[in-house]
Amino acid sequence: MDAKLSTAFWALLKRDLRLAYRHRNELLNPLFFFVLVVMLFPLGTSPEKELLMTMAPGVIWVAALLASMLSLDTLFRADFEDGTLEQITLSPHPLSVLVLAKIIAHWLVTGFPMILLAPLLAVFMYLPDEGIGVLMLTLAIGTPILSLIGAIGMGLTVGLRRGGMLLSLIVLPLYIPVLIFSANAVNTYLADLAIRGQIYFLMAVLVLAITLAPIATAAALRISLE
């Protein structure tokens, strides 16, 4: 059974990645959104360097939060509508593990490119160069957490016709710790202080999310499919 579970896991991961690749124009949308939101802040406040610099980590992280949340729709929606999700739940393998495969695939095509985009946004926001590495590190730890938590919310709302607004209401409060610690890690690093505490905290939350979120998502999907 074990060997078969890993086969199913990899098959699902590959399938989701292949499907994402075939709709690659859709993949760019959350990334454009990510850049666009960051761009709005200088326009809405002022192009002053000092102001933008202090806001940079927070603004980039808020944009990452919103982009990641809006991209959740691709996680289950299509599979829900064409019945694939129902078939997946019927498989003999634990749904939580299969869901984890889908979440990883989703993160690889949405969260991961956001990490690569971060240096560009850092330039937009005048983030000092030495902060870029830490920003990317926090994004690397934080965005998987966003995908995992978001999957629970998506699982709960996938069956609803107008779930979008509701999803944000459910998911955003749960994103707050990631935002606090990530943005703070970058700021603290720029102030030449140790950031080990923040990074450890983010990693702890990531471990917690990997262990519990797939189970909660699986439960949520079963409810939505009824």
Partner: peptide
């Protein structure tokens, strides 16, 4: 049932949110 799942997720998160804030 959906509400119960969300409430339980919230309970796990409340201490994390509280301490991070």
């Amino acid at each position: 049932r959906a509400g119960a799942v969300l409430a339980l997720v919230g309970v796990v998160n409340i201490p994390i949110i509280h301490y991070s804030v």
